[in-house]
């Protein structure tokens, strides 16, 4: 287990480094340069480029950037508040994004998995049919459309919930559900399928023959085996929630980090592109690492 954890840690670090490298060089290929504008004295542009170190050869810039990272130096944004440190921009806006993302993830897991188990228990019942129909419907709706649909129905037409900002608990409902519905339905569908597989196996019949209660069989015996593929799918789900946050923060005017990801690319804000990429990559790779470690805890048969 420890060896596996260490080995996976090393590959995670390698992946992170790979992502940093790819992003750094791809970013330089984006057409257009920072500090370009009409009516700017070329001398000033040159001095600005020199100040930010963009006049050096690319290789040197990269080495400087990576060594800077080790000392916690992420550079200064070229656009936001004309020169705010990238680290501060991210640190200031992380809490709200992470909070929304975590609530959405929690909802997806805590509602999705029990719903899937319930549908599998009542296989072919009316509930199961309704469930599988609506879940298939909802996994076909991209999360940005779900977010807008929620806003349109509950915010604009019914006027039940606020349509922008986060100031009361009601204002959390739409952004969080906009992000959570897609992963919730896909987790529920997956749980149902794997549960149906497991329920047919002999050891479940044995448990039933021993006289165990149905909830105990389902949640203690069946779910434990059924949740291995579900846990595997958590990694991509988290990535999906993150991409959902790009849109949710735009639609609901939330001052989080998600909107910076796309905006920094269109603004050619090199340090901020790197900063947001590193932040997202760290988050995703970290989550995948935890998910991989979780296998050993869930299924003792898997020798890590």
């Amino acid at each position: 287990m420890l060896r596996y954890a260490l080995r996976r840690f090393v590959t995670s670090v390698v992946t992170l480094f790979l992502v940093i490298t790819i992003t750094f060089f791809l970013m330089q290929l984006v057409p257009g340069e920072p500090m370009l504008g009409e009516n700017i004295n070329p001398e000033i542009t040159e001095r600005l480029l020199e100040r930010y170190g963009y006049d050096k050869p690319l290789g040197e810039q990269f080495v400087n950037y990576v060594t800077g990272l080790f000392t916690g130096e992420m550079g200064y944004s070229l656009v936001v508040k004309s020169g705010e440190p990238v680290f501060e921009i991210i640190a200031e806006r992380i809490p709200i994004s992470v909070e929304l993302g975590l609530i959405a993830l929690a909802i997806a897991i805590c509602l999705g998995i029990p719903l899937g188990v319930l549908a599998a228990m009542k296989h072919n019942s009316l509930f199961d049919r309704c469930f599988i129909f609506s879940a298939s419907l909802f996994v076909s709706v991209p999360s940005f459309i779900m977010t807008i649909a929620l806003m349109l129905v509950f915010g604009v037409w019914l006027k039940l919930l606020p349509i922008a900002y986060l100031d009361s608990w009601q204002s959390y409902l739409m952004p969080v559900f906009g992000m959570a519905i897609y992963p919730m339905c896909s987790l529920a569908r997956l749980t149902r399928t794997t549960m149906l597989d497991v329920i047919g196996q002999d050891y479940i019949k044995t448990a039933r023959a021993k006289g165990l209660s149905t909830p105990k069989i389902m949640f203690k015996h069946a779910l434990r085996n059924a949740c291995i593929p579900v846990v595997t799918s958590l990694g991509p789900q988290i990535a999906g929630i993150l991409t959902g946050s790009f849109v949710v923060e735009k639609v609901f005017a939330i001052n989080g980090i998600g909107r910076f990801f796309v905006n920094s690319i269109t603004a050619r804000d090199y340090p901020l592109i790197m900063g947001t990429t590193i932040f997202y990559a760290l988050l995703l790779i970290g989550c995948n690492y935890l998910v991989d470690l979780a296998y050993g805890l869930i299924d003792p048969r898997i020798k890590l």
Binding site: T11, T15, V19, P31, A239, T277, A281, N288
Partner: peptide
């Protein structure tokens, strides 16, 4: 290794770069 790379980040950047 490719599977562990968070693809959405690179997809967004690459789609701009290739244009």
């Amino acid at each position: 290794l490719m599977m562990t790379i968070p693809s959405m980040l690179i997809i967004i950047l690459l789609s701009v770069v290739l244009r």
